[in-house]
Nucleic acid binder design. Structure first.
Lengths: 115, 115
DNA sequence: CAGTATCCTTCACGATACTG
DNA sequence: CAGTATCGTGAAGGATACTG
């Protein structure tokens, strides 16, 4: 998504953070699964390439949404998790998610609440 | 924004509707101003070109977010307004807007949380 | 395992000119 | 007034191969 330099309201600023093609899915996965490793995320988000997943994660990290922790062990390990800011973003997205579920997705009982 | 054919959750579906570069600004303007004519919208959203404004409006119309009404008069007139669906979308976006205002915009009188 | 490194494609958006 | 009609560009995203 094209970074804007001036924002008119909070919404377009937020959309800018969250508007990448796979970003909300990353947020969703990290929220649902908790801390995730790279390969785990890749599996949770079928279709995304490693390159794009990496760049999205780095952008979310730069925006303070995601925490990235590297463990220098014999077997390399990196763990991703939501920052408090990321968790609050996810909460702010919930009404939008509910709207999408109710109006855009095929069917679904729309009384299914998620935390 | 790239249309996706399958959605994983309501949020990415909603982002798809609302993720065009100027779309939330259109929603914002229609919400704030009420019914608007084309030129009016153009003035409310500085920087957007006629071509892009047109195509965004048509997409929002196709998604049921915006109502477009043509008046065949001596002076051509077209009025845009939010549909009930569009109004509900705007409401669902409000928490995201609040989040963006609190965390992304320079400053209101708001105190800034952790850097 | 968790990425890089290249190369390539697409299309969203922009600039400008013209019109019913 | 409210748009089309073209043409052009850049960056986001994808495919594939390779690596510390």
């Amino acid at each position: 998504m094209t970074r804007r330099d001036t924002y008119v309201c909070g919404i377009d600023a937020a959309i800018d953070v969250v508007g990448g093609k796979w970003k909300v899915l990353i947020l969703w996965a990290l929220h649902a699964e908790g801390t995730c490793r790279f390969g785990q995320l890749k599996r949770e988000i079928p279709g995304v390439t490693e390159k794009v997943l990496t760049s999205h994660l780095r952008e979310l990290e730069a925006d303070g949404i995601v925490r990235r922790e590297v463990y220098e062990e014999r077997v390399p390990r990196v763990e991703y998790s939501l920052t408090p800011l990321g968790a609050s973003l996810n909460e702010a997205l919930e009404p939008l998610g509910a709207w999408g579920r109710a109006h855009l997705l095929p069917q679904d009982h729309h009384d299914r609440r998620s935390a």
